[in-house]
Computed example of a mutant assay.
Amino acid sequence: MNTDVFITCAVTGAGPSHEKSDRVPITPKQIADTAIEAAKAGAAVAHIHVRDPETGAASRNLAHYREVVERVRESDTDVVLNLTAGMGGDIVLGSAEQPLPLNEAETDMLGASARLEHVAELRPEICTLDCGTMNFATGDYIMTNTPATLRAMAARIQELGVRPEIEVFDFGQMVMAKQLYQEGLLDDPVLVQLCMGIPYGAPDDPRTLLNLVDQMPSDWTFSAFSIGRMQLPYVAQAALAGGNVRVGLEDNIYLSKGVLASNGDLVERAVNILTNMNARVLSPQDVRAKLALNKAA
């Protein structure tokens, strides 16, 4: 069991959760405010996506990222910022029978450098690197991260002095992460996020989690989470497996059955679970020391 645990709050994500809960933040101000709320509740890290303020749809608009980052940094609340770099890897086929031409309205593919434009300008302490391609959820959508793209993105993140959070959704992606490390594209200390229970990646049963942990070098730092109703049980599961935890409205909108949560609610519940397990919840300063982060890099 890990007895010194940091909490990441994934505050909004890119999915249509805003259609089910009015607590999901949409505008840059709302996203910044809820990141601050999560930090005050005990989260050391805020994982940030941005959305179109008018529609709530996923966005990669640099101005929205800039506003969120500036608002958080100018606040009196300390939190480690973790910006997604997952946008720009979306392929949607035309249909099962006619995959080409692609569904251009929903396909969003960028080159490696363009996917990191906001990271290069804003220099968060952490950014994500989704470590593989997968059938993500249903329909004809493919989350696309080729080996060449991953190598290019890892090299650019390394050059920027930002700590990548390696997002692992299944076993093959752990193999890719270890390959990037062997090639010198990931610096110590390596940070991994085990993303469990997401169709069609690794299921969130405890044996699969422990098997993934066993595949990881023992000196790597990891967090683990699951989506939906398993998010809060995974707070305990992740700590018991030796890791850190992630909660937030990106992955789950409920505090309990039928009770909509805020990000602060979910972080407070995570803190209670961990402290009742006699674990210490780490501060942003603790995380910076643990992960050798470059503050406001």
Rank of each mutant, 00 (worst) to 15 (best):
G86D: 00
N272M: 12
M216V: 05
T208A: 00
N2A: 07
V259L: 07
Q215T: 14
A177D: 03
G111P: 01
N2Y: 10
R115L: 00
V68S: 02
L150D: 05
N272L: 13
S75W: 07
R123Q: 12
A270G: 05
N211A: 15
A43W: 06
I227D: 00
H47R: 05
M216D: 02
P53N: 10
A289K: 15
G139C: 13
F136P: 04
E159V: 12
T275W: 08
A152Q: 15
E117A: 11
G13S: 11
L291D: 05
E121G: 07
D286G: 01
D4R: 15
C131L: 15
A148M: 13
R163Q: 15
I26N: 06
Y200M: 04
T107W: 06
I198W: 08
W220A: 02
D130L: 02
N103V: 00
G88C: 03
Q237T: 15
A177V: 14
Y65I: 12
A279T: 11
T107S: 12
M134K: 09
P199N: 08
S256N: 11
P53L: 10
M277V: 11
L209Y: 10
H49E: 09
L282F: 07
V69N: 06
P217W: 13
F225M: 08
A32I: 04
S17Q: 15
S223P: 01
N82H: 10
L212I: 06
S113W: 09
M176P: 00
G15S: 14
A35R: 02
Q215E: 13
R207F: 14
I36F: 09
A154W: 07
S95R: 10
N61F: 06
A43M: 07
C127D: 03
S75F: 12
K29H: 13
A58E: 11
D140M: 07
S223G: 13
A44D: 09
P28D: 02
R51P: 09
L186E: 00
S218P: 01
D265A: 08
